[in-house]
Design a binder for these strands. Structure first.
Lengths: 365, 365
DNA sequence: AGGGAAAATGTTATCGGTTACATCGATTCG
DNA sequence: CGAATCGATGTAACCGATAACATTTTCCCT
């Protein structure tokens, strides 16, 4: 009976009770020392070809695969990058994650993921686990601002002592990490201008939340442009209450039912495409025609945008590029502790038919 | 100069050059042995309260966090479960993944993820890495059948020697692992019957691929029920060519343009909701009214189904439950090597309006 | 007070690799 | 021909925890 408890799979190989194969087994079978085996499996040059071959044969024969754990212990790292995001179900986060995973893999790194809902705090336990796992870096995605995530600033600060950190969020004095973000204020101004050009004067904003994900910046940009264009800034046009399709339904229902129909907005900007999706459903259900009775703009340019009816005009935030940059920065930071910085990407408005901009649509109606 | 190369973050703490804090540092500072520190941090009971407190203070003061790597080396495992899936972007996989992550986390395990496209082989390198990382289990999701993924059977067999394996796929003689799956044949029969009840006689199947993800079973169920109901089985009604929305567009275009409009099907079943989404767009574009001129059924009951126009009737495959079971089985298998088995879940048809079944819709038109 | 059991704590081998350094043998060169 | 050199290989310390076992301390009871 072995002294230590072992997982059953470590004991069994074939039918006999047996230990996992280690570098010592290989060394013994090949008649060399463990140092030589290491040289062979890590591809160092100073090994005689015939020795190398002998070792390689044993490795293949035994199906030996060196323990990444033991390797990690030596140099205190894991070849793994941690990603924290609210929920992978949201396609925006899925895109970010997917792109990050690819980029990491291309560089021989793996991904460790943790979902933490937007409204949950980032507590010490998470940081502890990340530090404890000796991750090579951390990538935070989603609502990052202090107000919405209690303890986040402290968490990031602590984490930053152990590994490089990148976040998708506007730079923030208290956040001492690399920040990648979009200029959402300018993006919103762009959207408002787009609607203005198409003749809209009463424009609403739905979904999101003041605290999370920089809808502060969005709100600001939205209001700024309204003022710049001399448009009315009706407080009841600003409904912030969530991030999913249901929120969109609710927002529309509340917004429209609270106002006389003569005061209804003629266009709305949604926090994201999910919100827009819900809004479109509710609008249709209330008998409005899109885009004639109501124009709508989403955000994130999701895969389903071309397939809504009408196809949804949306803002592209380039999450794939952000993710790639994030991983690259984290990997670069392995070499030398970098100065924190921030990088802004332009957002682009992808015009489809939900605002009536493309000629085809109005004609169809 | 330190003898070993260290990542820069191991060297720096504050401004001074310093090693990472280890259990030895804590033990020394607290004036106890490492064994006692271990007892405290693992919460064992046989420690004098005052000793415990002293150690805890040092731990807190130094911000000490024990190395999961060193721990893992001791018992040859990682508290990590590997998940392999084609692409996280697909909301079906995202759901599975998310649910698995939650369940694993609730049990103190983490997730290691690798995306491998449906058409890519599962090569030795992947298996090597999983074995090398000493994962506690592997969860395969997506097109699993041998034909589509060269080398998969061998890979699973090898992997199965090192860790428990669960796959979402119909049981398969060569696959010596736990299989969770849906009876897609029966599900398809159900769908065909649904359409038949609504008066449809010419029913098509679009999207997917004969090799991947059990569309073999789907195809079989589809054909079986057509025969059982005495419906025509027109080979040109069977277009298998992909998994995304664009495939849906293409399939509809090809299907309809290859046939005289009097021979057009009056209903179609899509491989998944993405395919259905694309199909709906193309159908509308060709001037067909849904569901009057064409009924359509999707599969996966995605989040956007209630929001398509008309809301999409779809088949629910219970990925969340599958994922939970998968993780539970993998964790249970940590204790004792289980006999492989398979578990089938019923699929359910979620009826919305894309087939005209709900009374409201036809009236509206 | 003394003996013995029980509780607290310490000592040390161990997990599976990597690597600095030691050693050994062959080649080269004065 | 012997010494210096270089390449191939071996030895053993080390990474940071855990846990079996050994030892010390505490405490209780006669």
């Amino acid at each position: 009976m072995p002294t230590h408890a072992m997982p059953s799979f470590a004991k069994k190989r074939g039918t006999r009770l047996e230990k996992r194969i280690t570098i010592y087994d290989v060394a013994r079978a090949a008649g060399v020392s463990t140092a030589t085996v290491t040289r062979v499996i890590t591809g160092q040059s100073n090994v005689r070809p015939q020795t190398r071959e002998k070792v390689q044969q044993i490795v293949d024969k035994y199906g030996y695969s060196p323990s990444a754990i033991a390797r990690g212990l030596e140099n205190g790292q894991n070849k793994t990058i941690g990603i924290i995001l609210p929920e992978i179900i949201n396609p925006y986060f899925a895109q970010l994650f997917s792109s990050a995973e690819e980029e990491a893999r291309r560089n021989g790194y793996s991904i460790w993921l943790r979902q933490i809902p937007s409204d949950a705090p980032i507590d010490d336990a998470v940081v502890d686990e990340m530090v404890s796992r000796r991750l090579n870096g951390a990538f935070f995605v989603g609502g990052i601002l202090e107000a919405s995530r209690p303890g986040l600033t402290d968490a990031l600060k602590r984490l930053g002592q152990y590994m490089p950190v990148v976040a998708i969020c506007p730079p923030h004095a208290a956040l001492n990490c690399i920040c990648l973000y979009n200029d959402l204020a300018s993006c919103m101004r762009h959207a408002v201008r787009h609607l203005h050009t198409l003749g809209h004067r009463r424009i609403a904003f739905i979904g999101g939340s003041l605290q999370v994900g920089g809808s502060g910046a969005r709100g600001q940009g939205f209001l700024d442009e309204l003022h710049a264009l001399g448009l009315p800034d009706n407080p009841s046009y600003h409904h912030e209450n969530g991030f999913d399709a249901e929120s969109g339904e609710r927002a529309v229902l509340r917004l429209l039912s609270s106002l006389d129909s003569r005061c209804w907005p003629t266009a709305m900007i949604a926090f994201n495409d999910l919100v827009a999706l819900g809004a479109m459903k509710q609008l249709k259900q209330m008998g409005l025609r899109l885009p004639d009775d109501m124009a709508i703009i989403g955000c994130d340019n999701q895969f389903f945008c071309p397939y809504t009816d009408p196809p949804l005009t949306s803002m592209e935030l380039h999450p794939l590029e952000h993710a790639k940059s994030a991983i690259r920065e984290l990997l670069a930071a392995q070499e030398s502790h970098p100065q924190p910085f921030s990088l802004m990407r332009d957002s682009t408005l992808v015009v489809r038919e939900s605002c009536g901009a493309k000629l085809g649509y109005r004609k169809l109606e």
